[in-house]
Design a protein around this nucleic acid. Structure first.
Length: 496
RNA sequence: GGUCCUUUGGCCGAGUGGUUAGGCACAGCUCUGCAAAAGCUUUUACAGCGGUUCGAAUCCGCUAGGGACCUCCA
């Protein structure tokens, strides 16, 4: 079965075929670093991290470009007003690049927590002003943009004469023209549907660059077109982002790039759905965001406890990326428990001995396990159906635990099947889904001390000295370490 | 107002017309010195109405609720 992805452009699943054999060019809209990342932002980065990982697993050489939007109308909440009065000394004023640095750092930190692999190129908008200006010049010379008072606008109406403006978002231009909303600078545009390529900066606007049209800053859409073209070429394989970017951002990106490069820029458009909270999109304008720092620390009224980044990642992957996903503390806690159980099964699986030779004693079970394993590949191939992948992994957990606990005979499965399970669990859980152990306890000294405590407890139990054995267990429990008595008299422990 | 999406059991969430998604919670049982964990078993569904079909959660229509985009937005 070949890898299929849902293409927003055709509104159906298509077999993925790269433009250049063996290589994939992928662009994902990154964060605007004027504010702190929240749970909603986590979704595309985790979704496309899984895509990136899977493409690499398939053997492709992937160039993964994810931008940082650090240019535009930047101001920190609450500081706008005072900074506009620019009579303060330079060090007292908020320097836009301070904001950019602060939130870029926070964003990188969060991505690390989520175990997201860094993109191969992470270009910034401010680092590509020249490319953007050149692109705008090209669009003007092609006759699809015009300058008014130092700002440059894209002529959508003209574009629509020869191209389908709206093919991605399903928008109809005539409907857009009827929109009666009034915005700043609308009077400069020839038409309501036109969008800015370059905005003239007012005197108090701090972020500014000189251009053929005077001091100003680039429009929102042009940076992605310029940077994608530079690093991936006029036409590349995959462009990803949130559904809320479909229009106008991606629609405009197509228009700009098409005029500039004389071909449509992207083969497969992929869009993740929103994370909602009480059914409403999580977003700054709704005042319902939970920042990643709040999530990890539990410092939010809606959270009953801190949420581990791996729990968040697992929670997100338990739903399909094109469905909305509703946030609740209960759902996160459920995911935490689920992940713990699945991961323990995975650890148990690693310790199963696949050494015995011969055929499976329980042919039916062996066959069932192999079916589940085969399906893992089918599911991930089916537009990244991570919820189904996870469901199948869960199906195998009782089998693994059963063998470990000796409910199921050790030779029920063939050695080949057990080895295959071990490989596929690692491939899917770690390599593709990008999950990792929640707690690292590979400290040798700590391990030795735990072993000592376990030995003492075992001795106490043998002597039926339950006061001592219970004391060890109870005190450790209070410290967050759980002791488990195994069937065979052995003991194991986990960090809670 | 325009365009589009959605409504699944206590909760979260998969579901490509025809046999159990899965997870969490709950209950019973097994194991255990007692626990925990694990395992086994089991209970709750497809918003409503109508239609197509031998058969619909799945297709079509209507009604109701929710949502997204049209403006910065992952």
């Amino acid at each position: 079965m070949s890898f299929k992805i849902y293409n927003s452009l055709s509104r159906q699943k298509e077999v993925f075929e790269p433009i250049t054999q063996g290589h994939v060019g992928m662009y994902v809209c990154g964060p605007t670093v004027s504010g702190e990342s929240h749970l909603g932002h986590a979704r595309p980065y985790i979704t496309f991290d899984v895509l990136y990982r899977y493409l690499m697993y398939l053997g492709y050489k992937v160039r993964y470009v994810r931008n940082i939007t650090d240019a535009g109308h930047f101001e920190e909440e609450g500081r706008e007003a005072e900074d506009k009065i620019s009579k303060k000394a330079i060090l007292e004023k908020l320097e836009p690049m301070e904001l950019v640095q602060k939130y870029t750092n926070l964003y990188h930190w969060a991505m690390l927590q989520f175990n997201c692999i860094e993109p191969t190129i992470e270009p910034t908008a401010t680092g590509h002003i020249v490319e953007q200006i050149n692109m705008i010049k090209k669009i003007i010379s092609e006759g699809y943009a015009y300058e008014v008072n130092g700002s440059v606008y894209f002529d959508v109406k003209k574009y629509a004469e020869g191209h389908d403006y709206g093919k991605l978002s399903g928008r109809v231009l005539d409907d857009l023209l009827e929109t009666t909303r009034l915005l700043d600078g609308q009077d400069e545009k020839r038409d309501k549907a036109d969008f800015a390529l370059w905005k003239s900066a007012t005197p108090e606007h701090i972020m500014r660059w000189s251009s053929p049209w005077g001091d100003g800053f680039p429009g929102w859409h042009i940076e992605c077109s310029a940077m994608a073209t530079k690093y991936l070429g006029a036409r590349f394989d995959i462009h990803g982002g949130g559904m809320d970017l479909l229009f106008p951002h991606h629609e405009s990106e197509i228009a700009q790039s098409t005029i500039c490069n004389h071909e449509a820029p992207v083969r497969y458009w992929m869009h993740n759905n929103m994370i909602t909270i009480n059914g409403k999109k999580m977003g700054k304008s709704y005042n319902n965001v939970i920042t990643l720092r709040q999530l990890f620390s539990g410092d939010h009224p809606l959270l009953s406890q801190p949420i581990h980044p791996m729990t968040v990642r697992f929670f997100i992957l338990q739903s399909h990326y094109r469905s909305t996903l509703d946030f609740s503390s209960e759902a996160l806690v459920a995911s935490e428990k689920a992940l713990k159980r699945l991961w323990e099964a995975y650890e148990n699986l690693k310790n199963l001995n696949a050494a015995h030779e011969g055929i499976a004693a329980d042919a039916e079970l062996d066959k069932q396990v192999n079916t589940w394993l085969n399906e893992l590949h089918d599911f991930i191939n089916d537009d990244l159906s991570t919820p189904k992948v996870i469901a199948n992994l869960f199906e195998m957990a009782p089998v693994i635990n059963g063998i470990k606990d000796k409910h199921i005979a050790a030779d029920s499965l063939s050695a080949k099947t057990i080895t295959r399970m071990q490989n596929d669990f690692r491939i899917f859980l770690e390599d593709i889904l990008g999950l990792k152990a929640v707690s690292e306890n590979d400290n040798e000294l700590f391990q030795s001390i735990m072993q000592l405590l376990i030995d003492i407890r075992k001795e106490a139990k043998t002597k039926k000295d339950f006061v001592t054995s219970d004391k060890i267990r109870n005190q450790l429990t209070q410290m967050g370490i759980m002791i488990k008595d195994e069937k065979d008299g052995e003991m194991s422990w986990t960090l809670a």
